[in-house]
């Protein structure tokens, strides 16, 4: 049984993954830069530490994890850009260095499909070795792209660490609190009039399963993760059973900026409401045996 360090443990995906590992008899320790949430289970030791400060090293020194799941990427744009850079780029570099220094055997870094960037010329599907367009149109995504780039370099610069970089599509679920899950829970969900690009979703339970298969597999490198297929956005929104609100595309940026209910909505996602980013997860399924089991409709209905 392994000792597993999970970053971002205040988040639901990390917590669900940790609980799953406890069931299998692994020892889990959690870190996060945020204070522990009320829902945090007492069975998982919790250390509050910035990933870019020295305190995180104590956790490595004391706990000697064999596996590190770096799930603590900060996607939230409300966090100041400077702080996000410190956490995502400087912090991730630190976690990767410490993993190497303290003899970690397996490092899994959670990235995102957003870094491919929504663009009208995108082909379908997008494979792992393709250029990452996101930062050219939205410099705010620069930290996510850089985090991913660093982790990918790590896979071949330090083969001993057996690094995996995962780029999942939209992770949704009743307990997930990312921008998309929150968006899909709005009483009236806005969409861009005349646009309905293909979207992919993966349910929280499938994502936990994917992470689980991932770290236990022999796979090394970069992998896209998708759910059970792609569906037009309009169709997906109607599957939530909520009311929809059409917004003319030219008004979208203003709406996101000034409408009070949309303050937490990251503007870089607007392009994703126009143009598709459909990823291929063939490689991940081949190398880990992963198969998503929760259908898109089911997953959206139980949000």
């Amino acid at each position: 049984m392994a000792t597993v360090l999970i970053t971002g443990i205040a988040g639901s995906l990390a917590r669900l993954t940790a609980l799953r590992m406890l069931v299998d008899g692994h020892r889990v320790v959690g870190v996060d830069y945020r204070p522990p949430p009320k829902a945090h289970p007492s069975t998982i030791p919790y250390t509050q530490a910035n990933y870019n400060k020295t305190r995180i090293e104590d956790v490595f020194r004391k706990e000697k994890p064999e596996v590190v799941l770096h799930l603590g990427r900060v996607g939230n744009l409300k966090v100041r850009e400077g702080k996000r850079f410190d956490l995502n780029v400087v912090g991730s570099a630190k976690i990767m260095e410490l993993s190497l220094k303290y003899g970690v055997d397996r490092l899994v870094v959670l990235s995102t499909f957003h870094i491919y960037g929504a663009h009208h010329a995108n082909h379908i599907p997008i494979y792992e070795d393709e250029p990452l367009r996101a930062a050219t149109r939205f410099p705010q995504l620069g930290d996510a792209v850089q985090l991913d780039n660093m982790a990918v370099q790590w896979t071949y610069r330090h083969p001993r660490l057996r690094t995996l970089v995962l780029r999942p599509c939209n992770v949704i679920g009743p307990q997930i609190n990312n921008a998309i899950s929150r968006f899909l829970r709005l009483p009236r969900i806005p969409f861009l009039l005349g646009f309905s690009p293909m979207w992919q979703f993966i349910d929280q339970s499938d994502m936990v399963n994917a992470l689980h298969l991932a770290w236990q597999s022999n796979a090394v490198g970069v992998y896209n993760i998708a759910g059970t297929g792609a569906v037009p956005l309009r169709k997906a929104l109607s599957l939530t059973g909520r009311k929809l609100l059409p917004i003319p595309a030219p008004a979208a940026h203003g709406y996101v900026r000034y409408f009070p209910g949309m303050r937490a909505f990251p503007p870089y996602l607007i392009d994703f409401f126009k143009y598709p980013v459909v990823v291929s997860d063939d490689k991940f399924r081949q190398d880990t045996g992963f198969q998503a089991t929760i259908g898109i409709a089911e997953s959206l209905q139980r949000l």
Binding site: I124, S196, T228, G229, A230, P232, V278, I296
Partner: peptide
Amino acid sequence: LNELGYDAWG
């Protein structure tokens, strides 16, 4: 087609 009747291109 997938379960909802679409292919990947829509």
